[in-house]
């Protein structure tokens, strides 16, 4: 019991420090979040032009809203783009990979070797704290944008079971995002310099997670491949759940696979950590 009590006290201390650290830059934060929606404007106009051109084809209804691409009409497409922003607010981990790689390069992880604190565990708690603070501040801009764009959500507010699925999917996307980026950071034990690798990984995530466009649009051989990768659970899956594109048994299976990926990546993380420490040279101060 006492072991657990001290552990929880330790976690709580890390959590509190991280919260306070983050609250320092709140103004900049809120404004930055609002600015992030700016590119959405172009997206809306671009998709409108695409759907409009499709409606203008001979034999079509010439009603933009009746046109569908793989089940998405114009409104769905815009709603999807907004929801992806929400999902990425959970699953993106700015600075995690570079932070881990940096502390390996500079030898800062030594402190975790002599203190009774687990590095991955404390990073996770810090990240949770940072994210909570982020949501606390970002909820304003997010609520504003979603309210302004409410007419694009044809299906309205998600039903309770859907909402429950969405919450689970978002939490899962957070954990998966953390585990995947932490793995990438730990590769620095072997490569030392992972900046370019992290950049390519980020591009891949952008494309394969469905951040760019709904993965349903992917052509035939590619969609099968992407279905087998974990990236889709970082953005596409939560958004599709919120839009009501994944329901019932599919939803349950989707969540199961998502959490299996979480466990798999977390195990890989641990393994990389243990193997990495064996190789670790302890350069620097």
């Amino acid at each position: 019991m006492t072991v657990w009590r001290s552990r929880v006290r330790l976690w709580w201390a890390i959590f509190r420090v991280s919260v306070e650290e983050r609250l320092v830059y709140r103004g900049d934060f809120a404004f930055g979040t609002l600015m992030r929606f700016l590119p959405m404007l172009t997206q809306i106009f671009l998709w409108w032009a695409i759907f409009d051109a499709m409606a203008a084809r001979p034999g079509e209804t010439s009603d933009v809203n009746a046109i569908r691409i793989k089940g998405y009409n114009l409104h769905d497409m815009i709603a999807y783009m907004l929801l992806v922003m929400l999902a990425r607010a959970f699953s993106s981990m700015p600075g995690l990979t570079s932070g881990i790689a940096g502390s390996i390069q500079k030898g800062e992880i030594k402190k975790f070797l002599i203190q009774p604190v687990d590095m991955l565990g404390s990073l996770l708690i810090q990240r949770i704290a940072h994210k909570l603070v982020y949501y606390l501040i970002a909820i304003g801009p997010f609520a504003l944008v979603f309210f302004l764009c409410r007419s694009f959500f044809d299906a309205g507010f998600p039903a309770p079971d859907q909402l429950f699925g969405l919450v689970l999917a978002l939490v899962g996307s957070f954990l998966l995002g953390f585990a995947m980026e932490a793995c990438l950071g730990l590769v620095a034990f072997w490569l030392l310099e992972v900046t370019s690798l992290a950049f390519i990984f980020m591009l891949l995530t952008f494309f394969l997670s469905g951040h760019m466009f709904p993965l349903d649009l992917m052509p035939a051989p590619l969609d099968r491949l992407i279905g087998m990768l974990p990236f889709q659970y970082l953005a596409y899956f939560p958004s599709a759940v919120a839009l009501g594109k994944v329901t019932g048994e599919d939803l349950v299976w989707g969540l199961v696979i998502q959490y299996l990926w979480v466990i798999g990546c977390w195990v890989l993380c641990r393994w990389l950590w243990v193997r990495g420490l064996v190789r670790y040279g302890g350069y620097g101060g």
């Binding site: 695409i50 409009d52 051109a53 409606a55 203008a56 760019m212 649009l217 052509p219």
Partner: peptide, 15 residues
């Protein structure tokens, strides 16, 4: 690739 996919559904951008 994104625009290749877009053009597999439409034949122009804008009417």
């Amino acid at each position: 690739v994104f625009f290749k996919i877009v053009f597999s559904y439409t034949d122009s951008i804008g009417r």
